[in-house]
Amino acid sequence: MSKTSAETVVENNQTGNQFPAVSDDNRVALAEQEKREQWKLLSLTFPALVVIALVILIPVGWLFYLSFIGKAGGFSLENYQKMIEYKSYARTFTTTFQVSFLTTLICILLGYPLAYFLAQLPGRWVGFFMLAVLLPFWTSLLVRTYAWLVLLQRKGIINDFAINMGLWESPIKLVHNMTGTLIGMAHIMLPFLVLPLYNAMKKIDRDMMHAASNLGASPARAFWTVYMPLSLPGMVAGSLIVFVLCLGFYVTPAVLGGGRVIMVSTQITAILENQFNWGAASALGVVLLIATLLVLFIAGRVLKLDAALFGKS
């Protein structure tokens, strides 16, 4: 410290005696300034709030309203009654949740090792493999779905190849059913699981696994007791994204399901296309929305349980 600044400090100390010990000077002005800044911060979220209101709340409110409008025009529960009257509705809901659940499961089984592999790769290779994982994002959904059709159908590439190689005698039914739907869905959904999972895995300190094995855990044991629990938040996040996206899927089950895998979205389309019945379609949408929120709520509860187990991390 230079001499001059030391002197300044001394001077300040001397003049400081003029101020009272507790000062109310500027107290109000300072408090106001803080308030103003908080409002400014809040106002930054305003565009987002407007967008949410316009894009989510109003349409969803409209959906609810429409679902209670009967064909005659007035308030009616007929759209919901119809869902009980015909068994197809319960079945399509079952199918929708079944497809979503199985797709999520397949994504986990395929995506976990893939994300693990990516997380272990040295930096320069990650970019390349990540590109391979993300590439499907840049291809049209329809193109990817039809590509599977070309591969999987009765006279498709896989059946042709296998029959030529003598792997099986007559074509195996790989598409136009649940199998094909799940293959196509899993392919499209995989990146949605891998990305958050990869992120979670990347955050796991290498020392964690070293510590586990140093303390006597075999690689398998170390994986199940340390790595797996630490990657779980990423897996749950990814699985939720996949599951919820699957619930509303339309194109892939329509093309690869061969009309046998009827999802709620398929049924909504059928009702709209054939009956122009907004009310009935809205009611289906409302039930799907509520079912989805229910799943999210339950998952949230489970997650909170996890948070309690894991601490804040």
Partner: peptide, 15 residues
């Protein structure tokens, strides 16, 4: 009859 027919048809498809 289109509406009723469609409901019945989809019911069969969804089985």
């Amino acid at each position: 009859n289109r509406e009723t027919a469609l409901e019945l048809y989809i019911e069969m498809l969804s089985e």
